Simulated scan of single mutants.
Amino acid sequence: MNVTIIDVAKKAGVSPSTVSRVISGSTRISAATTKKVKIVMEDLGYHPNLMAKNLVSRTTMTIGLLLPRNADEAFLDIFFSEVTRGILSKATRAGYDLLLKTGKSEQEELEAVTRLVKGRRVDGIILLQSRLDDTVIRYLQQESFPFVLIGRDRERPDILTVDNDNVQAAYDVTRHLLELGHRRIGYASGPLELVVSADRHEGYRRALEEAGIEPQPGWFVSTELVRADSTSAVRALMDRPDRPTALVVMDDLLAFSLLNSLSELGYSVPEDMAVFGFNDNPMSPVSSPPISSVDIGVYHLGLEAAGLLLRSVKGEQPEQRRVIVPHRLIPRESSQPIKVT
């Protein structure tokens, strides 16, 4: 026997239109009535025809999440798993589903987003990174499609964003290392076309320049070099006569790779090289040595982004277009006072 909305209304002692409003999440229905109707729906085993409802309301009750790499690689990084957990938590509580799409290049990301938008498969999209002159963001703006960026877009300060103050975070890390007596401080960067990499590099440079130190090109290590041959990249860094005694590292996964290479070459952390990473990976406190890291509140980045997007798709005007999640430095054994000159 198929249970209908009329059956639910009769048993709950309300009108069918009231049941419809409860199903759609209307705030015009009291909490007591909503609770009563939902109990009856559960007792009768009634499941709303969401597809039909969505055709009428022109909503999908689904938000999209764009992962900027393939899923197998992305979920090895605590950032992507934790931010997704925050997004999913907020979306589920609001009755929304989450649809994940991936792209290994800017063009693949654009193609994935275009399919979501043109097919009207989601009500809004969350992006997890931005590039300088980002074509995906430009496309979403042209389509007037709701989206939130976790990060910052330098060319479009008016878009909805949730972010850390990455310039300040990298500045704080560099100042911490300076206060430990280090003067030759290097920077291990992510791809420089990413805004987060550029922002953290800016904070790093600003702290050194305020201390009267000119960052040297030879103190810089990129993700691409480390991925291609971590040991060779570290050897080139350590063979310099003015080699760094400390490194600001873009994220903890990169820090793990650098620690392994330093150990293979016979160097010790922090005696020969102090290391300070980002994202506070769960493995960082138990690595050898425990890695100093910046807690950027990854889960809360996802939570805030989902909340901001859901308000946007409902047509609500947000109180602020850029939400900043605070960061926190967690010094551990990998960043100690300088031991070599």
Rank of each mutant, 00 (worst) to 15 (best):
N2T: 12
I5M: 14
I6E: 13
A9F: 13
K11H: 08
P16A: 13
S17K: 09
S17P: 11
S17R: 06
S24N: 15
G25A: 14
T34R: 14
E42P: 01
D43N: 07
D43G: 00
N49G: 00
M51Y: 13
M51A: 14
A52G: 13
L55P: 00
V56E: 01
R58S: 07
R58W: 01
R58L: 03
T60R: 10
T62W: 04
L66Q: 09
L67G: 06
R69W: 02
N70V: 09
D72L: 07
F75A: 01
D77Q: 02
F79C: 03
F79Q: 03
S81N: 00
S81P: 00
V83I: 14
G86E: 13
S89N: 15
S89T: 14
A91S: 14
R93W: 15
T102E: 07
G103D: 10
S105N: 01
E108F: 06
E108M: 08
V113I: 10
V113R: 01
R115D: 12
R115N: 13
G124N: 05
L128G: 07
R131E: 08
L132C: 07
R138K: 15
Q142T: 13
L149Y: 10
G151F: 05
R152K: 05
E155N: 12
L160N: 02
V162P: 02
D172L: 02
T174C: 03
G186Y: 06
Y187D: 08
P191M: 01
V196S: 03
V196I: 04
V196Q: 07
D199T: 00
R200A: 00
Y204L: 01
Q216N: 05
G218V: 14
W219K: 04
F220Q: 14
E224D: 11
L225D: 15
D229L: 05
A233I: 06
A236P: 08
D239G: 12
D239I: 09
P241L: 13
R243Q: 12
R243I: 12
L259Y: 12
L259I: 15
S261I: 11
L262K: 11
E264Y: 10
Y267H: 11
V269T: 11
V269S: 02
M273R: 06
V275D: 02
G277L: 10
N281K: 00
P282T: 07
P285A: 03
V286N: 11
S288T: 15
P290F: 04
S292E: 07
G302Y: 14
L303E: 15
L309W: 04
S312H: 04
R322D: 09
V325C: 06
R328S: 12
L329S: 14
R332G: 04
E333S: 02
E333K: 08
P337S: 07
